[in-house]
Amino acid sequence: MQVLARHNVAVSGVEGAPVIVFAHGFGCDQNMWRLVVPAFEADFQVVVFDYVGAGGSDLAAYDRDKYASLAGYASDVIEIVEHLDRAPVTFVGHSVSTMIGVLASIERPELFDRLVLLGPSARYIDDGDYVGGFSSADIDELLESMDSNYLGWSHAIAPAIMGNEEQPALAAELDESFCRTDPDIARRFAAATFLADNRADLPRVSVPTLVLQCRNDAIAPLSAGQYVRDHVPGATFGQLDASGHCPHLSAPAETAAAIGEFVRA
């Protein structure tokens, strides 16, 4: 029970049906999946959660050393799946969660029967012929700007959430913590995310995998998605028409359909 509370785990859908776990990326929290989840609630047991440091997670459980690398987050995913006691499960990860899912599935392949990687990047920083989309200097600037734009990262979003009087229903529906992050934790998560290099892990994935790529994704460019497709053994590739980094928000129907086709096959 402790693990479920630590990650603010929410379960919906059909009890006893196959389990599908949706994992949010760097930035917000499980609410990112709210437009996609309903498409799976009729024939799956749907699980969403917050990483420690995000959304409604237990901030007291934040451990700088553990979460200095993606392996720490992957061990949490393993713990959550173990606690659900319904393995193997389908894991759908967005953004950095794609590599967290990859690491978890390598560590404990028996817990996962499918991986869906939405907007994956095995490395954000360019390296020789590899195009991750960012230079090393870019990422340094990002981490530095998170320091100097401390107020922006911590509280800028809050007024929009609290004071959305024209859409009180929506505002009430959303967790107030949506997108609000402790700036210190956000910076550490950013470092763990954008400095990671998981290219060598990709060939070790043994679970059927779908790679979903968006158009014009400023965070994970096409080249990054193609690299993942080419290096995860037997991976299926799907090109979404949606643009941007968050198709589960901008084009939830298309995203749900693409995930559904793979996980229901």
Partner: peptide, 22 residues
């Protein structure tokens, strides 16, 4: 700036899409 580019994608747009405004 690059930090804001990531912020735009990971915070700004998601909030805009869910709330209609930021």
């Amino acid at each position: 700036a690059v930090g804001d580019r990531i912020y735009l994608e990971t915070h700004f747009r998601p909030t805009l899409q869910l709330h209609g405004e930021v």
